[in-house]
Amino acid sequence: MNDASTGSESGAWLVVGLGNPGPSYAGHRHNVGYRVADELASRLGSGFRPHKSGRADVVEGRLGGPGGIGGERVVLARPRCYMNETGGPVSTLAKFYKIPVERIIAVHDELDIAFDTLRVKRGGGDNGHNGLRSMRRSLDSGEFYRVRVGIGRPPGRQDPASFVLSDYSSAERKALPFQVDRAADAVESLLTEGLEATQSRFNS
């Protein structure tokens, strides 16, 4: 089932890759959440399709089972709006599938973590991230999980806002597939092993 056009999924998880839509943003550091969502969709053997709300693309399936069998029911989502409007589509999907905030995972870029590093946590503020701020406002809670994919601080005096909206360096692009794969592994670990085990494995 790839299409989210019917029914609600009691007991499902909502995994949201944060980013900006359109080809001009595709290579930006700010779009690494989209990349991780794409990797998870490939593990499901499916491509994203528009949700009937018109505000997100989604894939439904199961992740985290041994050998790709079974596992947790998930809805993968990529909001079809700019980062600072992410919360609206996420709130709409959460209501449609009847998914509580404690079963939502946001995958996003993180300036305060070095490139090729990631951290997993639940709750907290938005640390200046417009996508997280929008989600917290629309969900009326920040108690969702976060897979924080490090992009590092900008070099010299470069403005952080322009840094996140710029492409990875050539050296970073070589390592990026491994980072994306590891972040997708962290999402699957959260689904099946829980927060503490996932932090022990990935927060290093």
Results as ranks from 00 to 15, higher is better:
81 C>P: 00
81 C>G: 00
81 C>W: 00
82 Y>F: 15
82 Y>I: 05
82 Y>S: 03
83 M>T: 01
84 N>Q: 04
84 N>M: 02
84 N>D: 06
84 N>W: 01
84 N>E: 03
85 E>I: 00
85 E>A: 05
85 E>L: 15
85 E>R: 04
86 T>R: 00
87 G>N: 13
87 G>D: 10
88 G>H: 06
88 G>Y: 07
88 G>W: 01
89 P>Y: 09
89 P>K: 11
89 P>T: 07
89 P>R: 11
89 P>S: 10
89 P>M: 09
90 V>E: 06
91 S>R: 15
91 S>P: 00
92 T>W: 10
92 T>S: 12
92 T>H: 10
92 T>I: 09
93 L>I: 09
93 L>G: 09
93 L>A: 08
93 L>V: 08
93 L>Q: 08
94 A>N: 12
95 K>Q: 11
95 K>T: 07
95 K>D: 10
96 F>D: 08
96 F>H: 11
96 F>E: 09
97 Y>A: 04
97 Y>E: 02
97 Y>T: 03
98 K>T: 08
98 K>A: 14
99 I>P: 11
99 I>M: 13
99 I>A: 09
99 I>F: 11
99 I>G: 09
100 P>N: 03
100 P>V: 02
100 P>I: 04
101 V>K: 15
101 V>S: 14
101 V>D: 12
101 V>F: 14
101 V>G: 06
102 E>T: 12
102 E>M: 01
102 E>I: 02
103 R>G: 14
103 R>A: 12
104 I>N: 03
104 I>Q: 02
104 I>T: 06
104 I>K: 01
104 I>C: 02
104 I>P: 02
105 I>D: 09
105 I>A: 07
105 I>R: 10
105 I>G: 09
106 A>F: 12
106 A>N: 13
106 A>E: 10
107 V>L: 08
107 V>H: 06
107 V>K: 05
108 H>R: 00
108 H>G: 03
108 H>S: 12
109 D>R: 13
109 D>Q: 13
110 E>V: 04
111 L>T: 11
111 L>D: 07
111 L>E: 09
112 D>T: 08
112 D>W: 04
112 D>F: 06
113 I>M: 13
113 I>P: 04
113 I>G: 07
113 I>N: 09
114 A>E: 14
114 A>T: 07
115 F>H: 15
115 F>Y: 14
116 D>P: 05
116 D>G: 11
117 T>I: 04
117 T>D: 10
118 L>C: 10
118 L>R: 05
118 L>E: 09
118 L>P: 12
118 L>F: 08
119 R>S: 12
119 R>A: 12
120 V>G: 14
121 K>H: 05
121 K>P: 05
121 K>S: 11
121 K>D: 04
121 K>W: 07
122 R>E: 02
122 R>S: 01
122 R>H: 02
123 G>A: 08
123 G>P: 07
123 G>N: 05
124 G>E: 06
124 G>H: 07
124 G>A: 04
124 G>Y: 10
125 G>Q: 05
125 G>F: 03
126 D>G: 03
126 D>E: 08
126 D>T: 03
126 D>Y: 07
127 N>Y: 04
127 N>V: 10
127 N>F: 07
128 G>H: 10
130 N>L: 01
130 N>M: 01
